[in-house]
Write a protein that binds this DNA or RNA. Sequence first.
DNA 1: GTTGACCTTCCCATATTGGGAAGGCCGAGG
DNA 2: CCTCGGCCTTCCCAATATGGGAAGGTCAAC
Lengths: 129, 129
Amino acid sequence: MNIGEAAAASGISAKMIRHYEAIGLLRAGRGANGYRVYGARDVAVLRFIRHARDLGFPLEDVRRLLALWQDRARASAEVKRLALAHVAALESKAESLRSMAASLGHLALHCHGDARPDCPILDDLARKE
Amino acid sequence: MNIGEAAAASGISAKMIRHYEAIGLLRAGRGANGYRVYGARDVAVLRFIRHARDLGFPLEDVRRLLALWQDRARASAEVKRLALAHVAALESKAESLRSMAASLGHLALHCHGDARPDCPILDDLARKE
DNA sequence: GTTGACCTTCCCATATTGGGAAGGCCGAGG
DNA sequence: CCTCGGCCTTCCCAATATGGGAAGGTCAAC
Protein backbone atom coordinates (compact mmCIF):
# COMPACT_ATOMS: atom_id res chain seq x y z
CA MET A 1 0.00 0.00 0.00
CA ASN A 2 1.34 3.43 -0.95
CA ILE A 3 1.01 6.53 1.19
CA GLY A 4 -2.16 7.75 -0.49
CA GLU A 5 -4.00 4.57 0.26
CA ALA A 6 -2.69 4.50 3.83
CA ALA A 7 -3.90 8.07 4.21
CA ALA A 8 -7.37 7.15 2.99
CA ALA A 9 -7.45 4.09 5.24
CA SER A 10 -6.31 5.92 8.35
CA GLY A 11 -7.87 9.34 7.94
CA ILE A 12 -4.50 11.07 8.23
CA SER A 13 -3.29 13.12 5.28
CA ALA A 14 -0.26 11.92 3.36
CA LYS A 15 1.41 15.16 4.33
CA MET A 16 1.01 14.43 8.01
CA ILE A 17 2.05 10.79 7.65
CA ARG A 18 5.34 11.98 6.20
CA HIS A 19 5.64 14.49 9.01
CA TYR A 20 5.00 11.88 11.69
CA GLU A 21 7.69 9.78 10.12
CA ALA A 22 10.09 12.73 10.07
CA ILE A 23 9.65 13.28 13.80
CA GLY A 24 10.13 9.61 14.54
CA LEU A 25 6.56 8.66 15.42
CA LEU A 26 6.48 5.99 12.71
CA ARG A 27 8.76 4.11 10.46
CA ALA A 28 7.80 3.13 6.93
CA GLY A 29 9.36 0.64 4.60
CA ARG A 30 10.38 1.65 1.10
CA GLY A 31 9.72 -0.07 -2.18
CA ALA A 32 12.29 -0.45 -4.93
CA ASN A 33 11.06 2.81 -6.46
CA GLY A 34 11.61 4.78 -3.26
CA TYR A 35 7.91 4.93 -2.44
CA ARG A 36 6.88 4.41 1.16
CA VAL A 37 5.15 1.06 1.72
CA TYR A 38 2.52 0.44 4.39
CA GLY A 39 0.81 -2.66 5.72
CA ALA A 40 -2.23 -3.29 7.89
CA ARG A 41 -0.13 -2.88 11.04
CA ASP A 42 1.04 0.54 9.89
CA VAL A 43 -2.52 1.60 9.22
CA ALA A 44 -3.46 0.45 12.73
CA VAL A 45 -0.68 2.64 14.14
CA LEU A 46 -1.88 5.57 12.07
CA ARG A 47 -5.42 5.12 13.28
CA PHE A 48 -4.17 4.93 16.85
CA ILE A 49 -2.42 8.24 16.31
CA ARG A 50 -5.52 9.78 14.84
CA HIS A 51 -7.70 8.66 17.71
CA ALA A 52 -5.23 10.07 20.22
CA ARG A 53 -5.10 13.35 18.30
CA ASP A 54 -8.88 13.42 18.21
CA LEU A 55 -8.76 13.36 22.00
CA GLY A 56 -6.41 16.32 21.91
CA PHE A 57 -3.25 14.53 23.01
CA PRO A 58 -0.17 16.46 21.92
CA LEU A 59 2.23 14.50 19.73
CA GLU A 60 4.69 13.96 22.58
CA ASP A 61 1.92 12.24 24.55
CA VAL A 62 1.00 10.28 21.46
CA ARG A 63 4.57 9.10 21.27
CA ARG A 64 4.40 7.83 24.85
CA LEU A 65 0.98 6.24 24.34
CA LEU A 66 2.24 4.45 21.26
CA ALA A 67 5.21 3.11 23.20
CA LEU A 68 2.91 1.92 25.98
CA TRP A 69 0.53 0.36 23.51
CA GLN A 70 3.35 -1.59 21.93
CA ASP A 71 4.75 -2.65 25.30
CA ARG A 72 3.00 -5.81 26.41
CA ALA A 73 4.47 -5.47 29.90
CA ARG A 74 3.08 -1.96 30.40
CA ALA A 75 1.29 -1.01 33.57
CA SER A 76 -2.10 0.50 32.87
CA ALA A 77 -1.34 2.92 35.71
CA GLU A 78 1.05 4.76 33.44
CA VAL A 79 -1.57 5.11 30.70
CA LYS A 80 -4.16 6.28 33.19
CA ARG A 81 -1.73 8.81 34.64
CA LEU A 82 -1.11 10.29 31.18
CA ALA A 83 -4.81 10.31 30.41
CA LEU A 84 -5.85 12.00 33.63
CA ALA A 85 -3.13 14.62 33.31
CA HIS A 86 -4.43 15.35 29.84
CA VAL A 87 -8.02 15.52 31.05
CA ALA A 88 -6.92 18.08 33.62
CA ALA A 89 -5.11 20.11 30.95
CA LEU A 90 -8.16 20.00 28.68
CA GLU A 91 -10.49 21.04 31.46
CA SER A 92 -8.21 23.84 32.49
CA LYS A 93 -8.00 25.19 28.97
CA ALA A 94 -11.73 24.80 28.42
CA GLU A 95 -12.43 26.66 31.63
CA SER A 96 -10.07 29.43 30.59
CA LEU A 97 -11.85 29.81 27.26
CA ARG A 98 -15.25 29.60 28.86
CA SER A 99 -14.25 32.32 31.28
CA MET A 100 -13.08 34.58 28.45
CA ALA A 101 -16.34 33.96 26.61
CA ALA A 102 -18.35 34.82 29.72
CA SER A 103 -16.44 38.06 30.34
CA LEU A 104 -16.72 39.19 26.78
CA GLY A 105 -20.31 38.08 26.50
CA HIS A 106 -21.14 40.14 29.53
CA LEU A 107 -19.50 43.19 28.03
CA ALA A 108 -21.35 42.64 24.76
CA LEU A 109 -24.67 42.50 26.59
CA HIS A 110 -24.24 46.13 27.53
CA CYS A 111 -23.20 47.26 24.08
CA HIS A 112 -25.99 48.85 22.08
CA GLY A 113 -24.66 47.53 18.83
CA ASP A 114 -26.09 50.32 16.74
CA ALA A 115 -24.70 53.24 14.76
CA ARG A 116 -23.58 55.14 17.84
CA PRO A 117 -19.90 55.03 18.80
CA ASP A 118 -20.34 54.43 22.55
CA CYS A 119 -19.18 50.97 23.38
CA PRO A 120 -18.55 49.39 26.78
CA ILE A 121 -16.45 46.72 25.10
CA LEU A 122 -13.93 49.26 23.82
CA ASP A 123 -14.18 51.15 27.11
CA ASP A 124 -13.19 48.04 28.97
CA LEU A 125 -10.31 47.24 26.64
CA ALA A 126 -9.09 50.81 27.10
CA ARG A 127 -9.32 50.74 30.89
CA LYS A 128 -6.24 51.84 32.79
CA GLU A 129 -4.69 49.15 34.90
CA MET B 1 10.25 56.25 27.97
CA ASN B 2 12.28 53.39 26.53
CA ILE B 3 10.90 49.99 25.61
CA GLY B 4 11.70 48.38 28.95
CA GLU B 5 9.70 50.94 30.85
CA ALA B 6 6.83 50.73 28.36
CA ALA B 7 6.88 46.96 28.81
CA ALA B 8 6.68 47.27 32.58
CA ALA B 9 3.90 49.87 32.32
CA SER B 10 1.82 47.85 29.87
CA GLY B 11 2.44 44.29 30.94
CA ILE B 12 3.64 43.32 27.47
CA SER B 13 7.18 42.05 27.07
CA ALA B 14 9.67 44.19 25.17
CA LYS B 15 10.04 41.28 22.81
CA MET B 16 6.37 41.33 21.95
CA ILE B 17 6.22 45.11 21.68
CA ARG B 18 8.87 44.91 18.97
CA HIS B 19 6.94 42.12 17.32
CA TYR B 20 3.69 44.08 17.35
CA GLU B 21 5.53 46.94 15.74
CA ALA B 22 7.00 44.62 13.11
CA ILE B 23 3.53 43.42 12.11
CA GLY B 24 2.19 46.96 11.98
CA LEU B 25 0.02 46.93 15.09
CA LEU B 26 1.90 49.92 16.52
CA ARG B 27 4.30 52.58 15.50
CA ALA B 28 7.03 53.85 17.80
CA GLY B 29 9.17 56.97 17.60
CA ARG B 30 12.91 56.75 17.74
CA GLY B 31 15.37 58.75 19.78
CA ALA B 32 18.67 60.10 18.47
CA ASN B 33 20.38 56.92 19.68
CA GLY B 34 18.06 54.67 17.72
CA TYR B 35 16.13 53.58 20.80
CA ARG B 36 12.35 53.31 20.53
CA VAL B 37 10.55 56.07 22.42
CA TYR B 38 7.10 55.68 23.98
CA GLY B 39 4.63 58.09 25.55
CA ALA B 40 1.50 57.69 27.65
CA ARG B 41 -0.61 57.26 24.53
CA ASP B 42 1.57 54.39 23.36
CA VAL B 43 1.27 52.70 26.72
CA ALA B 44 -2.51 53.06 26.52
CA VAL B 45 -2.44 51.33 23.13
CA LEU B 46 -0.26 48.57 24.53
CA ARG B 47 -2.62 48.05 27.43
CA PHE B 48 -5.56 47.94 25.03
CA ILE B 49 -3.77 45.22 23.12
CA ARG B 50 -3.05 43.29 26.28
CA HIS B 51 -6.65 43.43 27.43
CA ALA B 52 -7.86 42.24 24.05
CA ARG B 53 -5.33 39.40 24.10
CA ASP B 54 -6.44 38.51 27.63
CA LEU B 55 -9.91 38.00 26.19
CA GLY B 56 -8.41 35.67 23.63
CA PHE B 57 -8.82 37.90 20.58
CA PRO B 58 -6.39 36.90 17.84
CA LEU B 59 -4.04 39.64 16.70
CA GLU B 60 -5.99 40.24 13.50
CA ASP B 61 -9.07 40.99 15.59
CA VAL B 62 -6.96 43.18 17.85
CA ARG B 63 -5.90 45.12 14.79
CA ARG B 64 -9.54 45.74 13.86
CA LEU B 65 -10.53 46.61 17.41
CA LEU B 66 -7.68 49.11 17.63
CA ALA B 67 -8.81 50.73 14.39
CA LEU B 68 -12.37 50.93 15.69
CA TRP B 69 -11.20 52.31 19.01
CA GLN B 70 -9.29 55.05 17.28
CA ASP B 71 -12.17 55.85 14.93
CA ARG B 72 -14.46 58.36 16.61
CA ALA B 73 -17.12 57.79 13.97
CA ARG B 74 -17.26 54.03 14.53
CA ALA B 75 -20.54 52.22 14.93
CA SER B 76 -20.64 50.14 18.09
CA ALA B 77 -22.47 47.52 16.01
CA GLU B 78 -19.20 46.63 14.34
CA VAL B 79 -17.44 46.15 17.67
CA LYS B 80 -20.30 44.06 18.98
CA ARG B 81 -20.29 41.94 15.86
CA LEU B 82 -16.58 41.18 16.30
CA ALA B 83 -17.06 40.47 19.99
CA LEU B 84 -19.99 38.13 19.53
CA ALA B 85 -18.25 36.24 16.76
CA HIS B 86 -15.31 35.79 19.09
CA VAL B 87 -17.54 34.65 21.92
CA ALA B 88 -18.98 32.03 19.61
CA ALA B 89 -15.51 30.88 18.59
CA LEU B 90 -14.41 30.66 22.22
CA GLU B 91 -17.49 28.73 23.24
CA SER B 92 -17.10 26.37 20.32
CA LYS B 93 -13.49 25.65 21.19
CA ALA B 94 -14.28 25.31 24.88
CA GLU B 95 -17.05 22.87 24.09
CA SER B 96 -14.73 20.87 21.87
CA LEU B 97 -12.14 20.62 24.65
CA ARG B 98 -14.77 19.82 27.25
CA SER B 99 -16.09 17.06 25.04
CA MET B 100 -12.62 15.58 24.63
CA ALA B 101 -12.09 15.74 28.39
CA ALA B 102 -15.41 14.00 29.00
CA SER B 103 -14.68 11.21 26.52
CA LEU B 104 -11.22 10.59 27.87
CA GLY B 105 -12.37 10.91 31.47
CA HIS B 106 -15.00 8.28 30.80
CA LEU B 107 -12.43 5.92 29.36
CA ALA B 108 -10.11 6.54 32.31
CA LEU B 109 -12.89 5.66 34.75
CA HIS B 110 -12.84 2.11 33.45
CA CYS B 111 -9.08 1.78 33.55
CA HIS B 112 -7.78 -0.08 36.58
CA GLY B 113 -4.65 2.01 36.70
CA ASP B 114 -2.56 -0.67 38.34
CA ALA B 115 0.34 -2.87 37.31
CA ARG B 116 -1.72 -4.95 34.89
CA PRO B 117 -1.45 -4.17 31.17
CA ASP B 118 -5.19 -4.26 30.32
CA CYS B 119 -6.34 -0.79 29.51
CA PRO B 120 -9.61 0.38 27.97
CA ILE B 121 -7.96 3.66 27.05
CA LEU B 122 -5.44 1.96 24.79
CA ASP B 123 -8.14 -0.40 23.55
CA ASP B 124 -10.21 2.55 22.47
CA LEU B 125 -7.32 4.29 20.76
CA ALA B 126 -6.57 1.08 18.93
CA ARG B 127 -10.16 0.51 17.81
CA LYS B 128 -10.66 -0.12 14.11
CA GLU B 129 -12.66 2.55 12.39
C1' DG C 1 37.14 54.57 31.63
C1' DT C 2 35.26 50.50 32.92
C1' DT C 3 31.24 48.02 34.34
C1' DG C 4 26.50 46.74 34.21
C1' DA C 5 22.10 47.54 32.52
C1' DC C 6 19.82 48.69 28.77
C1' DC C 7 19.00 48.94 23.78
C1' DT C 8 19.48 47.33 18.70
C1' DT C 9 18.85 43.64 14.88
C1' DC C 10 18.84 38.92 13.37
C1' DC C 11 18.23 33.98 13.68
C1' DC C 12 16.03 30.10 15.87
C1' DA C 13 12.56 27.42 18.50
C1' DT C 14 8.09 25.94 20.01
C1' DA C 15 3.45 22.72 17.82
C1' DT C 16 0.54 21.32 13.94
C1' DT C 17 -1.05 21.45 9.59
C1' DG C 18 -1.14 22.70 5.03
C1' DG C 19 0.28 24.76 0.17
C1' DG C 20 3.06 24.41 -3.58
C1' DA C 21 7.21 23.73 -6.64
C1' DA C 22 10.35 20.69 -9.13
C1' DG C 23 11.14 16.34 -10.49
C1' DG C 24 10.66 10.93 -10.62
C1' DC C 25 7.65 6.73 -11.44
C1' DC C 26 3.87 4.07 -13.31
C1' DG C 27 -0.09 2.39 -15.90
C1' DA C 28 -3.30 3.23 -19.69
C1' DG C 29 -4.41 4.52 -24.25
C1' DG C 30 -3.07 6.03 -28.79
C1' DC D 1 7.06 3.69 -28.41
C1' DC D 2 5.40 7.91 -26.49
C1' DT D 3 2.64 10.71 -23.85
C1' DC D 4 -0.53 12.02 -20.27
C1' DG D 5 -2.72 11.94 -15.78
C1' DG D 6 -2.07 10.68 -11.31
C1' DC D 7 0.70 9.24 -7.94
C1' DC D 8 5.09 9.61 -5.46
C1' DT D 9 9.56 12.04 -3.79
C1' DT D 10 12.07 16.03 -1.27
C1' DC D 11 12.40 20.77 -0.02
C1' DC D 12 10.82 25.40 1.15
C1' DC D 13 7.30 28.40 3.06
C1' DA D 14 2.93 29.64 5.47
C1' DA D 15 0.00 30.31 9.54
C1' DT D 16 -0.83 30.85 15.22
C1' DA D 17 1.97 33.78 19.41
C1' DT D 18 5.71 33.90 22.15
C1' DG D 19 10.32 33.65 23.74
C1' DG D 20 15.62 32.51 23.83
C1' DG D 21 19.88 34.00 22.74
C1' DA D 22 23.92 36.02 20.12
C1' DA D 23 26.58 40.00 18.63
C1' DG D 24 27.10 44.57 19.09
C1' DG D 25 25.88 49.73 20.29
C1' DT D 26 24.60 53.21 24.20
C1' DC D 27 24.22 55.24 28.53
C1' DA D 28 24.78 56.32 33.37
C1' DA D 29 27.16 55.73 37.46
C1' DC D 30 31.21 55.09 39.97
